[in-house]
Write a protein that binds this DNA or RNA. Sequence first.
DNA 1: CCGCTGCGCCAAGATCCCGTAAAGATCGGC
DNA 2: GCCGATCTTTACGGGATCTTGGCGCAGCGG
Lengths: 248, 248
Amino acid sequence: MSPSPDRAADGSTDRTAGASVLVVDDEHAIVRALTAALEARHYRVTAARTGHEALELAATMTPDVVVLDLGLPDLDGLEVCRRIRRWSEVPIIVLTAEGSDRVKVQALDEGADDYVTKPFSTPELLARLRVALRHHRRSASDDADLAEHQVGELVVDHLHHEVRVAGERLDLTPKEFGFLAVLARHPGRVFTHRMILQEVWGEAYGTETQYLRVYASQIRKKLAGRPAPVLVTEPGVGYRLVDAADGS
Amino acid sequence: MSPSPDRAADGSTDRTAGASVLVVDDEHAIVRALTAALEARHYRVTAARTGHEALELAATMTPDVVVLDLGLPDLDGLEVCRRIRRWSEVPIIVLTAEGSDRVKVQALDEGADDYVTKPFSTPELLARLRVALRHHRRSASDDADLAEHQVGELVVDHLHHEVRVAGERLDLTPKEFGFLAVLARHPGRVFTHRMILQEVWGEAYGTETQYLRVYASQIRKKLAGRPAPVLVTEPGVGYRLVDAADGS
DNA sequence: CCGCTGCGCCAAGATCCCGTAAAGATCGGC
DNA sequence: GCCGATCTTTACGGGATCTTGGCGCAGCGG
């Protein structure tokens, strides 16, 4: 490609900035050095000193990546790795003093995503951290791709940004689409005026209820005569989307 | 998630068995040793000796993972890495003799997923290979990682960096190519302004929507009068590429 | 019975967004 | 250092969309 101005040679400015990192190590010096280096790159850093603390924090703060020293006072580092892997796929970068192949291989097979031996080069660790975040970001966005809501014969397809009724494409303006998409997220449930306005128009528009009347009307017009759900008014409260066939 | 029955301690029997590996190195001894080690684990191995050969094979055989030596006779290894990343997210494990930090960091930021210095420990390399395969397995469901994408009569060939319509080469500028290539990766799907801008121009350009209008216009002009797909505008949202023949 | 309130609906501006052309600015090759 | 290709920026017309005000209606309480 062309030389992008945003790709710094050291990768310090990239989309991984601002991610939260859990650093697990009992050596104070290491924690301090790592924290400093990471915060300088605008990561949010949390430190844990023991295995149990690490497990606790991994669960409560849901970090974007974990840097894990294997030599912990209470639990075996490998055990920590294994336990996190039981419920989370957060990237784990293992850090260790000894360079034994056996441990290295075991850690990687146990669910670690990378392995760096001490003494480590900080730039290298940071680069590997960016790799881990890159991966995680990718698989996370894959999950979000599956967004599609169905209400009776009506399908709101966020991926293609279109609405289909009985398979036929329905042509909506951006605001109309937004309105309908909000309601379709929870069929039958009431959304207040405020909720819809703030979601579609923005935070500041919480009271412009006349917009809703206009757009509700237009949406109903476009849905009329089709085997589609009905846009129901909840007087004084808001709107909801109800499948014509059932009375939920 | 749950403790997998396929996770043996030495990793010899796991779900990654049978995967295809592309080994890129000009040293015969390394290739021989690696091939032997990999085939013993029932991987399918293909070897490339030069950068160009590597790119060609990466495109035609779509390996599950690439092991890439940076010291190649024709192309810089980093360049190979970059070119593969233009169209594929196949895991790349970089292999190199020199241990310079700068190169290491650069390779990782350039798209490499891991980095091993020679002389390397075979068990470790194999373990890292398993990690790479584990990662990619997650998002291997889509067909975005192909060197060629076809939409109707239009073919985007990432390897040769060219576009053909009905077999005839279409002359595009780099930005035009990038724009079209993004859309062709998922025909019919909407790409938001932000997505396209960040992919083609860079992270920092997420709001420069006037570029898109200019280039959309130019691309349409070049596609006009040919049996090509149509570049459709989704007002307020983005663009998508639709085969003229069908309505997807 | 009457006024008030909230809603549906309409239609006229106002505004935003898009497409297009064309003029600088920039870059790379010769 | 010039020249051509490409990228960036500006400007403008047209059209779709959004916003706004108004009107009629129904329900409700005074």
